[in-house]
Design a protein around this nucleic acid. Structure first.
Length: 486
RNA sequence: GGCCCGUUGGUGUAAUUGGUUAACACGUCGCCCUUUCACGGCGAAGAGUACGGGUUCGAGUCCCGUACGGGUCACCA
């Protein structure tokens, strides 16, 4: 095994969307594979027919593609170990279950759901430390079993956990973990609908698909002894386990829908870049130990290692995600942001404006240090798309002076005589005027910004003027005279 | 409740594997830059490492106990 190329898998059950915790698990698997020259496999754990969700797999694949975690084998990328849907591997599980039965390591169980709940209740009443199946059906004779089978009685197949030493295994992030054997229940392996349970399916598939490292969430830690036992019963070599710390809500409970968005799609729709999501989630439970926090996927591949994965759960902190999104935005070329902006524009109220790339690029550049999301290129500077309809009250109070109309009128007159004014023209005109009238530049700039944009903040004064342009400046100044009353 | 895992500023993490005053980032606050807002720069507050014992010349790092948090105990994954 030492020399085998690593094979890891991300094995979600298709519930409809990709959970951010799932994204983190997928990412670590991906990084581990890429770092070590291995293969990354996507396997669909669709063994619960009651939870079937229409279109869930398609959506999952779409989201995986969007974030760029490309797998080497999966439902739509054939490898030599398919099928990659567990629902298409039923005969395989059955075959191994039969083998276990033959060897006395598993057995048929005909107990009804009724009996099981009654059993559980009794055990609870008796204050037993733990509710476990009582191996009732283990004592059935061969004839009895055959008879029931022939009669078509519904059955499940259970793991036969026999007394023995502690079950232990090594975990890459938690070192050695041990469980008492009698704390392990006779887990159902094959359900009465002939579908396997997760425990059976994941062990069989991981072995058959030659998975070398099982990297999954910590919620699986306590069922790992069952899996270890199965490997043992089947005579298979154990993979290396790595149980990742959970992602938490701000109250430290397991990250849940109730306390915010958990779907990767939600974050995508809110305007987060896949780069920031990946970067952020990578840092939840892992660090290279070198103070670097800004990464792209390639850099993560180069730095990642399982032995630097943290043990404790990590709170999902949106503020840091926001910061990372700003950082990634600023690192992107303007052309890419332009494409994003154009796309955002098509679904905005400005979709019919037909603005040129040249014009939009000016906005992209002027606002680059002032936005967190591409959509902010619209939302936080609407004055580039339409005349202001309101004027910020506090700015009026602070900046709109008695003489403001007079100054602005003069500026308006002067720029109206310039043909195709450049940014420098707007600047020189303003400075000259202020000098002639012997007043501070601020007497011009602040009211002018207010009149042109309606707000007190924004890009550099002359960028603002240049982008808005002479004609609109002139008309907006006139409008401001009417609308701004002190 | 049983079992398992965990616990370093508000949050994410670091600390040469036992060796100075516990470091960085996000967030917060302040100053500088900029006659705007941001970006950027500088600085501050904020943990004495959950708590209590031990081992040791020396413990965030090792051991034990307690507390707290979480996970798990399905014919769900």
């Amino acid at each position: 095994m030492i020399n085998e190329t690593p094979r890891v898998r991300f094995a979600p059950s298709p519930t409809g969307y990709l959970h951010v915790g799932g994204l983190r698990t997928a990412l670590y698997n991906y990084l581990f594979a890429k770092r070590n020259g291995g293969k990354f496999i996507l396997r669909i754990e669709d063994t619960d027919r009651n939870r079937y969700v229409e279109g869930a797999v398609e959506n999952l694949i779409k989201t995986m593609n969007w974030v760029g975690l490309n797998y080497d084998e999966g439902p739509d990328i054939d490898g030599n170990y398919g099928p990659y849907f567990q629902s298409e591997r039923l005969e395989i599980y059955k075959k191994y279950a039969d083998r276990l039965i033959e060897e006395g390591k598993a057995y048929y169980c005909f107990c009804t759901a009724d009996r099981l709940t009654r059993l559980r209740e009794e055990q609870q009443k008796a204050k037993l430390p733990q509710a476990k199946y009582d191996k009732h059906c283990l004592s059935l004779s061969k004839e009895e079993i055959q008879q029931k089978l022939n009669a078509g009685e519904r059955y499940v197949i259970r793991l036969n956990v026999k007394p023995g030493p502690k079950v232990s295994f090594n975990d890459e992030v938690r070192d050695r973990v041990e469980f008492d054997r009698d704390s392990i229940d006779d887990q159902i392996l094959i359900k009465s609908d002939s579908f396997p349970t997760y425990h059976m399916a994941n062990v069989v598939d991981d072995h058959l698909m030659k998975i070398t490292h099982v990297i999954r969430g910590e919620e699986w830690l306590s069922s790992t002894p069952k899996h270890v036992l199965l490997y043992d019963y089947l005579g298979w070599e154990l993979p290396i386990f790595a149980h990742l710390p959970l992602l938490l809500n701000s109250d430290k409970s397991k990250l849940s829908k109730r306390q915010g968005d958990v779907a990767v799609e939600d974050y995508r729709d809110k305007g987060y870049f896949k780069e920031s999501l990946i970067n952020f989630v990578a840092l939840l439970g892992w660090s290279a130990g070198d103070n670097v926090e800004f990464y792209n996927l390639q850099e993560l591949i180069e730095k990642f290692s399982l032995d630097r994965v943290h043990k404790a759960g990590a709170v999902f902190n949106v503020e840091k995600l926001n910061w990372l999104n700003e950082e990634h935005l600023r690192s992107k070329p303007n052309e890419e942001l332009l494409e994003g902006l154009k796309k955002a524009l098509t679904v905005s109220k400005y979709k019919n404006l037909n603005l040129t790339d040249e014009y939009l690029l000016l906005i992209v550049e002027a606002m680059k240090e002032r936005v967190s999301f591409v959509k902010d290129y619209i939302d936080s500077c609407t004055y580039f798309y339409e005349d202001p309809t309101e004027y910020d009250e506090t700015v009026i109070k602070k900046r709109w002076k008695e003489k403001s109309p007079e100054y602005l009128e003069k500026y308006k007159e002067r720029i109206s005589t310039i043909e195709n004014p450049t940014k420098e023209d707007f600047e020189k005109t303003l400075k000259d005027l202020a000098e002639e009238l012997e007043v501070g530049l601020g007497q011009f700039m602040h009211p002018l910004r207010l009149a042109v944009s309606g707000v007190g903040g924004g890009p550099g004064m002359f960028d603002l003027l240049y982008i808005v342009g002479k004609d609109r400046i002139i008309s907006r100044i006139s409008t401001a005279f009417e609308k701004i009353k002190k």
